[in-house]
Amino acid sequence: MKITVADVEHVARLARLELTPGEKELFAGQMGAILGYVEKLKELDTEGIVPTSHAVPMENSFREDIARPSIGLEKALANAPSRAGSFFVVPNVIE
């Protein structure tokens, strides 16, 4: 299956990845080979087959709605690359 560098650039944008020109070339070839291989699924007739998203036959999993303590502000912010008081700091979203 043919995957072009333009295809790779499109998918990388969707995945929020920035690839070097070398990576783009490499991934185009490798993704082409991998997606070519998965084409074999088309040999199978799956008309009317229900898709499986999950191996265990369970519907919803309910529990009592009881408030419990959470990990708290300090722990939640302990790994923040940048913080101010009780907030995560990020670059400007709106100029």
Binding site: L35, L41, L44, T46, T52
Partner: peptide
């Protein structure tokens, strides 16, 4: 791709 694979997963199960 994705839904097709989920259907084949059913066949494998």
């Amino acid at each position: 791709y994705y839904v097709k694979a989920q259907k084949v997963r059913t066949l494998i199960m």
